[in-house]
Nucleic acid binder design. Structure first.
Lengths: 139, 139
DNA sequence: CTATGTGCAAATCTTTTGCAGGCTA
DNA sequence: TAGCCTGCAAAAGATTTGCACATAG
């Protein structure tokens, strides 16, 4: 129901310590309102917001996604050199990247087992391991 | 020696079935002349070419890298949303991405063992598995 | 000779930024 | 009220493209 998804967005936003402005609440609701994880591009979220009748500018969508990432509410996923994707799920998990439609979906983390991993080179520390399974719809 | 690296570039180019123009030979020589694998950006290779005294335009570098990828001489690596990287090594291998300097280096493939991998979703086929180890220089 | 390839500049696309006005705490 | 936010438009980067000229086969 509506109220529930609004609450969820509000709490989520509060967790990041960000001011609950109208625009941020609207975007938060779109992002976590239904509970599921979303993988969005700035343009895509902007389109969703407009479709939902929310008045938000594209620049604000960019700034807001960036802000959400900075406070640890989301993370950026790099799979396509031409577009940035953002994920509401914060744990380290693998993704499917659909090359023909440029979409991202979660891959089942329990089905990925890395039994050996290269160590970080001397003088370096490992910050994250990105695993992207590139897939394509069968013709 | 010079002749050797020129030969190498020439043969490499021929393998792709591309016409050996002056510009392509120059870039090929820079890319595979010393035998090692290179990870370059268009801007970076352009700078190298100019430094080597080769007259090549930036647009041609872009077009040429794209052409090399199309004929299977190189592959694009996606690790940074703002820049495209190209790799002369064609097998599927992991990379280190240095977050602080935006550089890419090869990670030892033998140290990566994936004992279980998520299957491609129904109706899809797996084309590649990208593994990027993000690292950072220790302060 | 004909099809490709090249170079320049302009165009495109995504993302960021400057600045004036608006709103939360 | 003070400081953070927002929106618009302009700026900034990276990459691509149109078109006239050059060149490999």
């Amino acid at each position: 129901m509506q109220t529930n998804s609004e609450d969820r967005g509000q709490k989520w936003l509060a967790r990041g310590g960000l001011r609950p402005t109208r625009q941020r609440l609207a975007l938060a609701k779109l992002l976590v309102g239904d509970g599921g994880n979303r993988h969005v591009t700035a343009e895509g979220l902007y389109a969703d917001a407009r479709a939902a009748g929310e008045a938000v500018s594209l620049a604000t969508v960019y700034n807001t996604l960036r802000a959400f990432c900075e406070v640890g509410l989301m993370q950026e996923i790099t799979v396509d050199a031409t577009r940035s994707f953002f994920d509401t799920r914060m744990d380290d998990h693998p993704h499917y990247f659909w090359e023909d439609t440029s979409e991202i979906t979660d891959a089942p983390a329990e089905d990925l087992v890395i039994s050996r991993l290269p160590a970080a080179p001397a003088g370096a520390e490992l910050t994250r391991v990105d695993v992207v399974l590139r897939v394509r719809h069968i013709a």
